[in-house]
Design a protein around this nucleic acid. Structure first.
Lengths: 364, 364
DNA sequence: ATTGCCAATGTAAGCGGTTACATGGGCATG
DNA sequence: CATGCCCATGTAACCGCTTACATTGGCAAT
């Protein structure tokens, strides 16, 4: 079996072996394999044949050492779990693989220091980064980030950097309009954490749409919340005491809406009979609570997919000046938790088509 | 600013720069940084100081080229989503990071060819692999896998390879015992896909425990299923026609149990009044369905964690002969969907503590 | 026939580390 | 004081690939 003296270690075929077998130089092999220069057709054929016969796989480390490219991007996420996490990864992964990139993942970062460590060790290992970080820490992040490295921010904007965002504003507006259309006048809103950009945008969308629809807004209708179920419950309990009592509650995320549902059930308030409830995100359980939750769906995989798209552009064409932007549109999903507040014009609750979708069970 | 002539490109500090600044040779710097040899304390101090001052970060490609180690492992999963996916990654990630390893992720593989491609391109890029593949494809996988590469199988066993498994057998037994203890005689079982190892083990656990508890088993009590909600519904509908009708349904996974719940609700059969229902996996929605589902919890993050543990051992100490094994234990989580079939000895359904846990809402 | 040019290919210098081997100084021993 | 040994360190050869530059041969123009 032909094997160059250089690669004595068995099991490793190098570019030299291929060159030897094809009767050409390593340079030619490299050229053929990378398509970076003109090679006679006959030569190319021989090289490809030799490579295939030898089951040659280029050594990535060597390639990346000399070319200064790793064909890998890093994805760094904070402490988010479940559906969101997996969908982001899936989106990025699919898009990346299509372009021949690999992804280096690091999740579950609860504090900044840890995140910076990871970023540090990823340096040199990746050609670009997709990062999701709490707003407050963006500044600190910049300082310790390699200056030339393409970076796409998820979920938090920075005027200087490329970023991809969710149309929180439009989604919130759509929900308010939906509720207004159903006939609701007093629509309460449960806010998210003040420092969360998504939460702020959703609040803004709520306020603007309320104004546009000629609905009254007031501090009494805006409850504090922190995206947890408990805060949603607490807010709902407060609202039950308000007079006049609102007829609809719009929570800035599904978890709080679920909390609100629980509180209302505990208080014996019927949903959607006496009170409509809406959320935001369309988390998986949204369709399983009672009644199924009307909410705003965000296509998270698409978020990942586009994040990679932006990053890819930035890597391939680093010169483009203005920060790149992309925005994920949202969809309103009407389920059973909202209906008209006027018993007379009661809307017939149509069975939710999606409730019994054929989702594959997660294998154990 | 000191910069060796070799590294003309700005922004990149090499080991030479550090050596120069510390007044030693590159070999010494390397030795200090890797702790692979004895170095005078004074020298070590100077090197570390220089490295820190220069913000030196070793070039991974170079290191991996000469050392033939990438400090990276690959995680290749099929088309699984959501909680399961994210938890596996989280477990592996946390364990890997603790040992200084990175993880290269690739998910959403629906067909074997795609999976093999990924495995191919990961070759040389990773020191080991955590792979989850459908049973049937394991063989094909072996053929095209680099022979020396440490590999840990998730979720499917192969006598030759290291693998980590879930205690499906024990979990199923525990559930049957639980139901038997509540007083159920006729306990039906909804099976999973025949080619799925988890499903087979759960079935085995069900049968053995039924025997041990002196409960009758019969083909009529074992329904076909494929892990989807729909198959769970269909099975439940079948069971309602059986005579005598069973008093409990144990589904091989939660999705089918959820489907069964829906079918029972549609048929006006009260759960757990007339029929108890149990699942397996404890997927997130299990606690949100009505009534909350009694099920078997599997600590998926632990699965990932231990998978890395096994892999790490295999990488560090490749000589160990026997295939390494590890098994994840399960926990029974009693919620509202099961209770005694005898109205007389009705067990008081205690409120499920976990129903209103303070789970952080997934951000946006 | 000589010259010039171009396309196709070869040669070899890196890329930035690791590490086998060489070197040199200090100290105990004969 | 010469000898030998060992510890700490330096020198330089790789690791496998990319690529700037050199080389070659063929053909058109002179």
């Amino acid at each position: 079996m032909p094997r160059s003296p250089r690669s004595a270690r068995p099991g490793t075929t190098t570019i030299h072996d291929v060159a030897l077998r094809a009767g050409v130089s390593v340079a030619t092999v490299s050229r053929v394999l990378n398509g970076k220069a003109v090679v006679r057709e006959e030569t190319e054929r021989q090289v490809l044949e030799a490579a295939k016969a030898l089951r040659y796989v280029p050594n990535v480390a060597a390639r990346s050492l000399s070319s200064r490219r790793s064909q890998t991007i890093g994805v760094v996420l904070p402490d988010v779990h479940g559906e969101f996490f997996s969908e982001v990864i899936r989106g990025v992964d699919l898009a990346a693989r299509a372009k021949g990139y690999h992804i280096l993942v690091s999740g579950s970062h609860s504090d900044l220091g840890e995140m910076l460590d990871v970023l540090e060790t990823m340096h040199g290992r990746v050609d670009g980064l997709v990062v999701m970080a709490p707003e407050v820490e963006i500044a600190a992040l910049h300082l310790s980030l390699p200056p030339g490295l393409p970076l796409v921010l998820l979920n938090s904007i920075d005027p200087e950097r490329d970023a991809i965002t969710i149309d929180n504003y439009g989604g919130a507006q759509a929900m308010v309009r939906h509720l207004a259309e159903l006939g609701h006048e007093r629509i309460a809103f449960i806010k998210g954490p003040r420092q969360n950009a998504d939460a702020r945008e959703r609040l803004r969308g709520y306020r603007d749409a309320m104004g546009e629809e000629g609905r009254p807004t007031s501090p009494a209708l805006e409850l504090e919340g922190d995206f947890t179920e408990d805060s949603g419950s607490a807010a709902a309990e407060h609202l039950l005491l308000a007079k006049p009592r609102p007829t609809a509650i719009f929570a800035a995320n599904d978890s709080m809406a679920v909390g609100a549902l629980a509180a209302l059930a505990a208080a014996g308030v019927s949903v959607p009979g006496e009170m409509s409830v809406a959320g935001f995100d369309d988390i998986p359980i949204a369709r399983y609570v009672t009644p199924p939750l009307t909410t705003i769906r965000v296509d998270i995989a698409d978020l990942g997919r586009r994040a990679f798209g932006l990053l890819f552009d930035a890597i391939e064409q680093p010169l483009a000046p203005a920060p790149r932007r992309d925005c994920i549109k949202t969809t309103l999903v009407a389920r059973g938790s909202c209906r008209s507040p006027h018993p007379s014009k009661k809307t017939r609750p149509r069975p939710d088509r999606e409730l019994r979708g054929r989702r594959k069970g997660e294998e154990s």
